[in-house]
Amino acid sequence: MDLDYSAADDAFRADIRAWLAANVPAELSDKVLNHKRLTRDDLARWHKLLGARGWSAPAWPVEYGGPGWDATQRHIWDEECARIGAPPVLPFGVSMVAPVLMKYGNDAQKRYYLPRILAGDDWWCQGYSEPGSGSDLASLRARAERHGDHYVVNGQKTWTTLGQHADMMFCLVRTDPAAKKQEGISFLLIDMKTPGITVRPIITLDEDHEVNEVFFEDVKVPVENLVGDENRGWTYAKYLLGHERTGIARVGQSKRELAFLKQIALREKKNGRPLLHDPLFAARVASLEIELMALEVTVLRVVANEAGGRGPGPEASMLKIKGTEVQQALTELMVDAIGPLAAPFDVPFLEGEHDHAASGDDDAAPLAAYYFNYRKTSIYGGSNEIQKNIIAQMMLGL
């Protein structure tokens, strides 16, 4: 297994770096690098810019409008986007439902939805979790009953990220209550403008409206919006989650945040010396950097396997666990480094209403919200405890 970059890879990186430097809007990278909140328009604008270059879906094959990059090139792209502070491309359409449609969707679904996802015409959200059905997703209760040429959906979804902006939802519903848990679930595409859908905000600990609860009351969904076969949605859901968990590692982002942490720790003083020179704090930073280096090597191993034609297996669970642990540790060290000035929540500053923080420290102002927001990363995409069970079963045979 060769984990070194080739000369062609280095040339590709140079081209990508030059294009990003010339095309990432400064006001967007400023928000990303300084932990401010991105708006719907910010994310849509970046998607359109990438779409014009043909790069809004880096993992897509050429036949569906993607650039046809290999796994190594996609990894380089992710790293360079994170380094410069490019906004994310929301994964729900491009990286989650699109691979399911490519593999399991019918021709009509591919023709209609994939170009719209590529162009950013549809904003997607994920309808998986329910109250009482998070980590035990197969226990979901939202139901869909077939009535002629449509399904009637009733039930509730929760923690629906950015559902307040969504045009479409890919949703797991129970279509056979009598079947075993995993065998009675179907995968539906639901227009969020359909009568009977109510979206209610959940304001999280960081005082942000990022997630929602969604209620379905006699919502009519055309049968043509069923992906694959009825009652086989669990298969499609697992396929989607493999893609989601691999992306959660976010090595490039963590490398950028590690540099930010060191910058803070050099600025802050302890006993008249930079905090980063304090032996105990420096040891914590060094330990985290070692963990990040090990994570990066693991990601490169997965990339090498993908380049050899092998898709992500239980390794995706390893990346999810360690990636989220590193992200959480970084936010914790940032808050520790700044100290009391990290405590206030300056929401107007985070949302761009003020140019500078009320506390006078623009670096410190976003960190409490950033810390609280990242408590969720070890839960979404399948909690880390569940991922350890997957590893135990699939890799250790326990």
Results as ranks from 00 to 15, higher is better:
276 L>R: 08
38 L>E: 02
127 G>D: 09
328 Q>P: 00
186 S>V: 07
167 D>R: 02
340 P>G: 13
66 G>V: 09
361 D>C: 04
225 N>K: 05
107 D>V: 13
73 Q>K: 15
18 A>G: 14
368 A>F: 00
232 R>I: 06
152 V>E: 03
231 N>M: 05
185 I>Y: 06
272 G>V: 10
198 T>C: 03
127 G>R: 07
47 H>F: 01
218 D>W: 09
183 E>N: 00
268 E>D: 15
128 Y>A: 14
17 R>S: 07
124 W>S: 04
285 V>L: 05
26 A>R: 04
227 V>F: 10
396 L>S: 09
37 R>H: 04
52 A>F: 12
330 L>P: 14
63 E>Y: 14
77 W>S: 07
353 E>K: 15
371 Y>H: 08
373 N>R: 15
259 A>F: 12
56 S>I: 13
37 R>I: 10
267 R>D: 13
300 L>H: 07
147 H>K: 05
37 R>N: 11
334 M>I: 06
44 A>T: 09
213 E>G: 11
74 R>I: 14
177 P>R: 08
358 A>D: 10
383 S>N: 15
143 R>F: 02
249 A>Q: 05
206 D>Y: 01
238 K>Q: 12
223 V>D: 01
249 A>Y: 13
175 T>W: 01
204 T>K: 08
317 S>K: 05
306 E>S: 02
119 A>Y: 15
258 L>E: 03
346 D>T: 08
25 P>G: 05
104 Y>T: 13
293 M>C: 04
354 H>S: 10
142 A>S: 11
77 W>E: 10
235 T>A: 12
83 R>N: 05
274 P>V: 14
283 A>E: 06
8 A>C: 12
254 S>H: 02
293 M>I: 01
357 A>G: 10
194 T>S: 09
42 D>L: 05
222 P>L: 15
80 E>A: 11
341 L>N: 13
111 R>W: 06
176 D>V: 06
182 Q>N: 07
246 T>Y: 14
187 F>R: 02
238 K>A: 11
115 P>R: 15
30 D>G: 06
